[in-house]
Design a protein around this nucleic acid. Sequence first.
DNA 1: GAATATTTGTCGCTAAGCGACAAAAAGTCG
DNA 2: CGACTTTTTGTCGCTTAGCGACAAATATTC
Lengths: 219, 219
Amino acid sequence: MPRAESPSPETSNRGRPPMSDRRKHIMRTQIARAAVDLFTAKGVSATTGDDIAHELGISTRTLWRYFPSKESCVRPLLTGGLDLMTERLRTWPPELSLTEHLERSGALAEDAGVPSMASMIDLIRMTRTEPGLRAVWLDVHHCAEEVFAEAIADRAGLTPDTLSVRVGAAMINVALRVAAERFADHADHEAGDEDDKDMADLIRAALEVVEDGLGPFTR
Amino acid sequence: MPRAESPSPETSNRGRPPMSDRRKHIMRTQIARAAVDLFTAKGVSATTGDDIAHELGISTRTLWRYFPSKESCVRPLLTGGLDLMTERLRTWPPELSLTEHLERSGALAEDAGVPSMASMIDLIRMTRTEPGLRAVWLDVHHCAEEVFAEAIADRAGLTPDTLSVRVGAAMINVALRVAAERFADHADHEAGDEDDKDMADLIRAALEVVEDGLGPFTR
DNA sequence: GAATATTTGTCGCTAAGCGACAAAAAGTCG
DNA sequence: CGACTTTTTGTCGCTTAGCGACAAATATTC
């Protein structure tokens, strides 16, 4: 049986601590990369699971072991920004409000946090026209809601199931989603108007609405 | 070719104004009913498109002409509540705030607005465990965001693309979603604690968080 | 290096979902 | 009502998604 070569020489863990989980993680990101490349090149519907698998030199069966559908292959890329956000929730300092803390996390995410920003931008754009990708995108954020709810509940001394906590977590979540979508949409205008260009400003502006509420808005 | 009998005698438009669109709409709701019944009875993964089609006496090919996947067959049921909400946005009186207006709409929805409330509750519960149904549920609400954005923008004299408008619409939207999910989860406890029992109270409480914002919450 | 556990590939299968064509409706006009 | 047109439906065939089972290959442990 012709064994597939390691996905990439520099990402393989040769000699270093074995760590089987690491291998899986690398494989998933490799698949995600190949998938997004093919999606952007040929379109989602024209890309088959066989295409993605063949690109990496793995069998189709193995591909479906890593992801349950071809659209979900790009999930690791779409979670990139949120992973950093939710990760930093663990070190949420008491003197900062949640929005302040998230704003600073957002500033980090833009710079070095996410390795392949260009692919992510392409992906988020594709979610507009590709229902399958949009479903993944929405689900990624839906999963993040849970994490936000736990963080908020923990801080406020409430249960994550409290209605206000769930709504609050969802509000935070959509603010980040809308900011990301807007960033993706306006990313290539580059040297245009300097209103809300970088991710940090967008996140700040979006979270501001969440912070203040709709009261002063739609009355 | 054995023609399928009309889905139901009383829902067929025999002799009355022709109206081809009406037939389609009836067909869609009939399919949705059959789908949710089979999903609750056998589970989603164990239900095939053939099952749904056979239940209605139509061919599988026709089923896929009405819906692009078996999960999306239940979409008409999941949009029930939101349809009423967005429809009533057209008659949003100037003297009411958006949340006030939506609260009243919510009170209507509970009573007579949605015909098959029981099926909807079952469906929303299933979205927890069935990824395919959750995707439909999230997408239904995502589509509603667009409508809310237009309504808010229209009232505020802004473009629907304004960041604050989009975030605001998304906030409204998730509040309604969380309220619906909570209602579905706590629906059968019936005569338990009288905290947040009916839909109207839940919507009111959820929209209150949106109205006030997270400022007084996570600081 | 041998024994064990995990991963992968091959095979076979069910089901999703679409394109094309023909039959059967439904709608139209006289 | 009857001929005509338009829309809908069914049948057929096909590609792809995606999983279960078993065997080979690989990784891990001792």
